[in-house]
Design a protein around this nucleic acid. Structure first.
Length: 914
RNA sequence: GCCCGGGUGGCGGAAUUGGUAGACGCGCUGGACUCAAAAUCCAGUUUCAGCAAUGAAGUGCGGGUUCGAUUCCCGCCCCGGGUACCA
């Protein structure tokens, strides 16, 4: 043992300094990963090696992982994928001299702990704590370089105190449309007309401007979960994404809502400056759904009434042959004629009920009913019927439309169903003659561009025939504005955010409802409002939260003896994750959410890595809160996350029969790459599917760590393929990288392989190529190719059999971000005193990378035929000569005529012959 | 329907300001070590033809541009994700 150390450290005098760390290298030739992985994890943790503090002398790097919900099932192999990627980057950035902030925490409010409480009576806080402990243990076993002093937990009162504090800020903010920013509610100008109506009117007015408000809302209610869910939590197939059941229905309930649409434009334009995947930006743009067009007033024939519609195609106004108004539209009652009253009433009733039913009926047959009224098309002067139909939504635009059936598929379907007139005003000149004929006759719908026809009214001084679409839209809008019949207008699809849930395990709202009808927020000094002690977690059937059972907690009395009740709804799970990246900056601060100085130093997040499932909701909500905080001067940046990256999903192989039914993996037998059912003998097809308990193909990171070590798990997850790709897990793949790590250990821990003296030139070249490629690839997040380069280097070492200690140490530094435990072990084995994770990244020496000769591929007519070694600096004419005169060329030139020769220096030679 | 991704050996995947297609790994085949096995090491491995040298084909399909196309253009097919009466 001593002999070995002496050899490795090269100098017996240094021996006494050998292990300044509490840690000793294992110094055995076995790749005994479990021994030294635990040892180094303990060392990092005990010495707080990855703790970071504000240091203006260094460039900062804030690297954030989407924090997990600590479920009872523990970590799955998907978690370590993103975590390893960020860990590699953080370790690399530290080595490059950055001050790195890399925290981890728990998004721990949520349904499962609460459901478990209902079943077993165990308080969710206890379940949550156990799960967090398990998650922390599992994550620490992966050797991730988090600063654990910054760990946060959204369910901790010292955390959600500030979530409540931010809610109060939202409540006390209004959006100034002129300035395009949020401002304190005290600054809200109250119009004289409101003031004269008295105190109540002022209060109502102010409430109507707050970013957070309490109102009756038509909401989705999940009968299974006994809670409301946001629109976006109800999936296409009508099921609730949290529980998967289809027991979702419409209800009217008093709810807290946030006016996120006020920030629609800011949320949209803010995307432009962000380094995010274009796909995610597109999804957010679609979600915000900006469109521009015009609002147009239609006079109702025989009434002193106008009906306002929103259209993106004012240029098609000449083709508007009827109108449709949403069933919930406030003017329906006024509009409908006596004769149509019953029919319309009936229709509205069914329509309201219908929204309770499966909203995704594939056969979306258009329904509707005539109101008995006619509107007047302002351009044609024609009377056009006004219908009520549920294909027009109250929540978008003005809740009424002008229908242009010739050029809108929905309107066309409706017109055909009810025999309404179809007038073509866009001639599809470029379409096939058959289609064109049908469109002109009103027998087909044409939604693309064309040439305007029937689009002039000389009496009114308007004519768009012959104009382009752009000009047409502009001309009609100008005319409408001049005639005072309408104006240009912009619309957004994004709706108010339903922000309350009838659950126990969430942040209580800092709100009190007083007996006199006043609503007030809890004073900052009285925060946090903690959850009551109770043993009743069951929500009520009709929408009351479990909190309404906690009498002592619920009822409050103010100084004047006025009685009040606390808000019993709780916040949705999104709340805690909306701002957690800010709390990491200063997690123990109990006088403010975070120090301004620290915030100013660390923000924005430089890199945010997580799953694409949060592409819209979490990331949009979070940006919204951040912008409000920015407007109030609480944070220093307009956007929270500068760069975003989505890791792909890790799937597993699964098996199915010819008829498509899935077979659990333990019933599958592999015979030379073909798969058979162990019981029926039937041949099965291998497919790629999500890991699931029922398919018995779930991989537990604990098992992988136990069998192959944390470094193997880390390396495999990075080696599988590009980080953003979806890819299947294979055990043989893990063995592959495990084998690589063993080769590294066996070679570099073997004293006989490590020499003194000058390094071989070829080895230096490959070493420096490896430093360069690995560093570049880490910056590009192309970890799979970085690892393959390290494999190439290791394979080279096995060929040359000996490397210098300097080479070995340099390679250990390059490997360190990927396989930190093994690298620390080797580094200590070479007698180094300070941990490798504190070393600087090796510098690439260009001198070793320059090639003196180039091996040119020589092609004939683009087909590579042979290779030719030539000096790298040989001028092109000489390269041509050398290629043509080479003996290998003769057989390809024989009997052919040389057309030309192309030489791309240092790349290729192509000879064209005929 | 619309909006994004993506299609390369038996498998995971490399390679793009157009320049040797298949790096690296898995699997497979052969060899060394061993009484033997495991482990390890070494060699081979796109397909087809051939003992071989070598030749032909080849990056979802069909065209095009080019000395040269996985890469660029046009038209399709298939797979994955998002979204859906948003006027």
């Amino acid at each position: 043992m001593i002999e070995l150390r002496r050899k490795l450290t090269g100098n017996s005098a240094t021996f006494s300094y050998f292990c300044p760390l509490i840690v000793k290298p294992a110094c055995t030739m076995e790749y005994n990963f479990s021994e030294f992985e635990q040892k180094w994890q303990k060392y990092w943790l005990d010495n707080k090696v990855f703790a970071s503090e504000v240091d203006p002398s260094k460039p900062k790097f804030y690297c954030l992982d989407m924090f997990p919900y600590p479920s009872g099932a523990g970590l799955h192999v998907g978690h370590p994928e993103g975590y390893t990627a960020t860990d590699i980057i953080c370790r690399y950035k530290r080595a490059k001299g950055f001050n790195v902030l890399h925290p981890m925490g728990w998004d721990a409010f949520g349904l499962p702990a609460e459901q478990y409480a209902i079943q077993t009576g165990t308080h969710p806080a206890i379940t949550t704590e156990n799960n967090c402990n398990n998650f922390r243990r599992q994550i620490q076993a992966l050797g991730l370089s988090y600063d654990w002093d910054r760990e946060i937990n959204t369910t901790d009162p010292s955390y959600f105190k500030w979530t409540q504090w931010i809610f109060i800020r939202l409540y006390n903010t209004w959006f100034d449309k002129e300035l395009g920013k949020g401002r304190p509610i005290e600054d809200l100008p109250i119009p004289e007309s409101v003031k004269t109506k008295g105190k109540e009117a002022v209060k109502t007015y102010v409430n109507s401007k707050r970013l957070a408000y309490y109102d009756n809302a038509q909401v989705w209610w999940c009968k299974h979960c006994k809670t409301v869910c946001a629109n976006e939590e109800v999936l296409n197939d009508g099921s609730h994404e949290k529980c998967g059941t289809k027991e979702v229905e419409r209800r009217f309930l008093k709810q807290w809502m946030l006016r996120i649409p006020h920030y629609a434009e800011r949320l949209l334009t803010g995307l432009d400056g962000l380094d995010w995947p274009e796909g995610v930006k597109d999804m957010q743009r679609n979600w915000i759904g900006k469109s521009s067009g015009a609002e147009v007033d239609y006079n109702i024939a025989g009434m002193d009434l106008q009906l306002r519609v929103y259209t993106t195609r004012p240029d098609t106004l000449f083709g508007a042959t009827y109108m449709v108004i949403a069933p919930e539209h406030p003017l329906v009652k006024k509009l409908v004629t006596q004769e149509q009253l019953t029919a319309v009433d009936d229709y509205i009733k069914t329509a309201t009920l219908k929204s309770d039913l499966d909203r995704t009926e594939l056969a979306k047959e258009k329904t509707g009913v005539f109101t008995g009224r006619y509107a007047i098309n302002p351009l044609t002067g024609n009377q056009i019927p006004v219908w009520v139909a549920d294909y027009v939504l109250m929540g978008y635009g003005t809740g009424a439309i002008m229908a242009v059936p010739a050029h809108d598929t929905r309107d066309f379907e409706f017109a055909k169903t009810f025999g309404l007139q179809v007038t073509c005003i866009l001639d599809p000149r470029d379409a096939s003659p058959e289609i064109r004929e049908k469109v002109l006759a009103g027998d087909a719908c044409w939604t693309e561009d064309g040439a305007y026809i029937n689009s002039a009214n000389p009496e009114l001084g308007i004519d768009i025939n012959g104009l382009s679409k752009q000009e047409g839209i502009k001309t009609v809008i100008n005319w409408l504005e001049k005639e005072n019949l309408g104006n240009a207008s912009t619309n957004y699809k994004i709706r108010d955010w339903l922000f309350s849930r009838q659950r126990f395990w969430g942040e209580p709202f800092p709100i009190i409802h007083w007996e006199d009808g006043e609503v007030s927020v809890v004073e900052d000094a009285d925060l946090p409002v903690i959850l009551p002690v109770t043993d009743k977690y069951q929500p009520g059937e009709s929408g009351e939260s479990p909190l309404s059972n906690a009498k002592e907690w619920l009822e409050v009395v103010d100084a004047n003896g006025r009685k009040g009740r606390r808000e019993t709804n709780t916040m949705p799970q999104w709340a805690g994750s909306c701002w957690y990246y800010l709390r990491y900056i200063d997690p123990k601060n109990d006088t403010e959410p975070f120090s301004k100085v620290k915030e100013n130093y660390w923000m924005p997040v430089d890199l945010y890595v997580g799953g694409a499932e949060h592409a819209v909701l979490h990331l949009l909500y979070s940006r919204f809160w951040h912008k409000v905080l920015f407007d109030l001067g609480i944070v220093s940046t307009d956007e929270p996350y500068q760069k975003l990256y989505n890791q792909g999903m890790i799937l597993a192989f699964a098996y199915e029969t010819a008829s498509g039914s899935k077979v659990a993996s333990d019933l599958v037998e592999d015979k030379d790459g073909r798969y058979f059912h162990t019981e029926t003998g039937e041949e099965l097809k291998q497919i790629v599917a999500k890991m699931s308990k029922s398919l018995k193909n779930v991989v537990n990171p604990d098992d992988v760590v136990a069998s192959f070590g944390a470094d193997s798990l880390r390396l495999y997850e990075m080696f599988m393929g590009p980080l953003d790709a979806t890819k299947p897990w294979t055990e043989t793949g893990v063995k592959g990288v495990y084998n690589f790590l063993k080769r590294v250990y066996y070679f570099f821990a073997e004293p006989n392989n490590i020499t003194d003296g000058d390094e071989d030139r070829e080895t230096l070249k490959i070493l420096h190529q490896t430093i360069k490629k690995t560093g570049d690839d880490i910056e590009d997040m192309k970890f799979n190719t970085a690892i393959s380069q390290m494999m190439i280097f290791t394979n080279h070492c096995y060929k040359v059999k000996k490397v210098t200690r300097e080479t070995a140490e340099t390679f250990a530094k390059v490997l360190a971000p990927f396989a930190p435990h093994l690298s620390e072990e080797l580094w200590a084995l070479y007698g180094n005193q300070q941990a490798i994770c504190l070393q600087t990244w090796p510098v690439v020496n260009q001198e070793f990378l320059v090639e003196s000769t180039v091996e040119y591929p020589v092609s004939f007519n683009g087909k590579m035929r042979f290779k030719l070694k030539l000096p790298a600096d040989m001028p092109v004419p000489e390269v041509e000569k050398a290629a043509l005169n080479d003996e290998n060329s003769q057989r390809w030139l024989e009997g052919k005529q040389l057309v030309k020769i192309i030489v791309v220096p240092k790349k290729i030679i192509n000879i064209v012959v005929r």
